[in-house]
Each structure stands twice: as structure tokens, then as C-alpha cells.
């Protein structure tokens, strides 16, 4: 099984006034296709930074991040945007739905950005993912008319609609109660099983970590425990 995410000797520094703060120290990590991986760390340990690099919304100060074989450092803004649009799906902690669009339109949004599909194909795809996340009845509701769990389901549908290779989820259950959070993880897990979509999510919730194939633990910008082997090889 090839690695869909390859991280080699990655260092990430942020300027803080005149100082430079090193958020990642020489990180090495491979994520294989179809993995269901959790990055677990306390706040400030570098897990969001790592997720940003994998999500192509940021590039490393040194080292290489390869997504599906392409080094992100070699891409310009347009190239990175294209990569995000076609290879990645995002699930945000605060759901980040577009308030002025209804559920259906939010899910449809990335497909419209991608283009290429006929209206009919698009419609079928959108309805399919909405059914998958169990929101078929609320299709015309606006984000502010949905509960937190429902919103995160919409976010999952939006992340999946383009059939990405990787879905990145940044603490997807942090803003949800534990039952809802568990349901969301169940949903992600199910999709991971059925579609072999790679899921990488950050969390500091032990319940969530338990359900992951692999838990990558971080502290002070370093990977301290890769967790590989615990329950790896779901695919």
C-alpha cells in the first residue's frame, strides 16, 4: 500500500515579532491510502500545523510534504488550490458552512468550483452524499436552522462530494456533545470502510482516539508516538 501523504524532515517556523517560533521539528510521517488516522496532542503541540501542511493551506519552511506524490513546496497558490479542490476534503471544528447557502447548496459548492459535471450528474452526486449523511429531509435548510451535529454532517457531505483521496478533519467533534461526536466518528468510520477514503483527523478526545486505526501522538512539535501497528491495516 503506497503512502498518500509523505512527510519528510519537515520543519515549520512562524515569525512572532522578531522571533521565529518553531512549530514543527523535523517531522517524518507517512499516511497510507485508506487509513483512519488520528493525530492526538494537547493544544499547541503542533497538530493543527501538521494538518495545515497536509491540507495544502500552508507549506513547510523546510522538508517535503508530498500529497499523492506531489510536493506542495513546488506548487504556487493556484496549484495548491487545485490540489485542495481535487484531492482533499475538509471538515472543520466550527463546521464553516457558508451561511447564505442552504444545505444542498453548501454541499454542491465544491462541485461547482470543480466544474465538469452536468447539472444532472451533480444533482445525483449531491443527493447521494446528503442521503449518506442522513440529511435527506433537510435539504433546503440553512445552516442556522440545523443543529451542531447536523451541521457537521453537512460539512462531511461537503468534504466527500468531490470524492477526495483524503479527508482532513480538524477536531471534528470538539464542538459537539459526546453522543453526537460519537455518531459523527461512526459516520466517518463507515465511509472509510465503504469507500476506502483516507481520513486524517486531529483530536484530544480519548474516545475518538480509541476508534482510530492509528494514533499519532505529538508533543512540542515532534511526533512522539506513531502508534503504527496498534490496529493498522484497516484497508
Amino acid at each position: 500500500m503506497t503512502a498518500i501523504v509523505e512527510i519528510e524532515n519537515v520543519v515549520k517556523e512562524y515569525p512572532l515579532g522578531k522571533l521565529k517560533v518553531r512549530a514543527l521539528h523535523d517531522v517524518n510521517l507517512d499516511i497510507r491510502r485508506g487509513e483512519f488516522a488520528a493525530i492526538a496532542a494537547p493544544s499547541g503541540a503542533g497538530k493543527t500545523t501538521l494538518l495545515n501542511l497536509i491540507g495544502c493551506v500552508d507549506t513547510p519552511t523546510s522538508g517535503v510534504v508530498r500529497i499523492d506524490g506531489r510536493s506542495t513546496s513546488e506548487l504556487d497558490d493556484g496549484g495548491l488550490t487545485n490540489l485542495r479542490l481535487h484531492k482533499l476534503g475538509f471538515i472543520f471544528q466550527s463546521f464553516n458552512l457558508i451561511a447564505v447557502l442552504d444545505l444542498y447548496q453548501n454541499v454542491e459548492f465544491p462541485l461547482l468550483l470543480q466544474g465538469g459535471l452536468s447539472r444532472k450528474e451533480r444533482d445525483a452526486r449531491v443527493r447521494e452524499v446528503i442521503e449518506k449523511v442522513g440529511l435527506g429531509q433537510q435539504i433546503r435548510q440553512r445552516p442556522n436552522e440545523l443543529s451542531g451535529g447536523q451541521r457537521q454532517r453537512v460539512a462531511i457531505a461537503r468534504a466527500l462530494v468531490t470524492r477526495p483521496a483524503i479527508v482532513l478533519a480538524d477536531e471534528p467533534t470538539a464542538n459537539l456533545d459526546s453522543t453526537t461526536g460519537r455518531n459523527i466518528i461512526d459516520l466517518m468510520r463507515e465511509i472509510n470502510h465503504k469507500e476506502h477514503t483516507t481520513f486524517i483527523f486531529s483530536t484530544h478526545d480519548p474516545d475518538v482516539m480509541e476508534r482510530a486505526d492509528r494514533v499519532i501522538k505529538m508533543a512540542d512539535g515532534r511526533i512522539v508516538d506513531d502508534g503504527r501497528g496498534a490496529s493498522a491495516g484497516a484497508a
Binding site: G55, V57, D77, G78, T81, N82, R84, L85, H86, F90, F92, N96, I98, F109, P110, L113, Q114, R158, T162
Partner: peptide, 10 residues
Amino acid sequence: GTMRAIGAER
């Protein structure tokens, strides 16, 4: 930012 992250160009 979300639009951009999802894949909207500048």
C-alpha cells in the same frame, strides 16, 4: 477562508 480552503481560487 473556508471557500479558499475548499478550493476557490483568488
